[in-house]
């Protein structure tokens, strides 16, 4: 995307140490691939992870986040439930005879265009409600969603409400307090009604 300025990658030792979560994830994948947890696997995985970070450097993720367990469980639980519902919904749509879905493209303005939250929200919203991300703009935080059947999803407003609620759950789980305040999302604990979100 030539429109966006290319961010500098980090190749120094400190830069790599600063990316320890990525190394941990890569090492964990390595251990899972081998299927047993032994020191040899952990060390080999960590070494390979460092090698990967050196050879294929990525720009650091500029997210000031905070992980909250409770909201994360809410997000995950809702996600699993929604995934089951959405999958069977689409499955029965496919099996219903003489049914032609009425597709539409809806644009949704997310509250926080931050890369990490935009990505998580977009990925989850592709899987969860009856939507599919067609285009996402990093700078403005606009997400263009294709919906399989606009009437089923409750019209344009319904789609927007669903995605914004999803974003709210994502922000509650991962965003820092500042971001939450900035985006006008109440702190976890205080609940909002749906109308307020839309």
């Amino acid at each position: 995307m030539s429109l966006h300025p290319r961010r500098r990658t980090v190749r120094t030792v400190r830069g790599i140490v600063a990316q320890w979560p990525a190394i941990a994830v890569l090492a964990a994948i390595w251990v899972l691939l081998w299927g047993d947890l032994s020191w040899a696997n952990v060390i080999a995985g960590a070494l390979l992870a460092v090698l990967i970070m050196v050879v294929f450097p990525l720009p650091p993720v500029a997210a000031q986040g905070r992980f909250r367990l409770g909201p994360f469980l809410v997000l995950a639980g809702r996600f699993v439930a929604d995934l089951v519902v959405a999958s069977f919904h689409v499955a029965f749509m496919a099996l219903r005879p003489r049914y032609v879905p009425r597709g539409a493209v809806v644009v949704v303005q997310l509250r926080n265009p931050d890369d990490v939250f935009l990505t998580i929200t977009a990925v989850l919203s592709t899987l969860v409600p009856g939507s599919l991300v067609v285009e996402a703009q990093r700078r403005t935080g606009l997400v263009y969603l294709h919906v399989l059947d606009i009437e089923d999803s409750g019209g344009v407003e319904g789609v927007r409400r669903n995605v914004l609620q999803l974003e709210e759950r994502v922000l509650r789980a991962f965003a820092s307090d500042d971001v939450l305040a900035q985006c006008d999302v109440p702190q976890p604990g205080g609940r909002t009604s749906n109308e307020e979100v839309a």
């Binding site: 999958s87 689409v90 499955a91 496919a94």
Partner: peptide, 22 residues
């Protein structure tokens, strides 16, 4: 059902739905 959807749905994007979720 994903297979049925991928074959039956009329447009590329609708098929994409069938192939992702179910």
């Amino acid at each position: 059902a994903a297979g049925i959807g991928a074959l039956r749905f009329p447009s590329l994007l609708a098929r994409m739905h069938a192939v992702t979720k179910p």
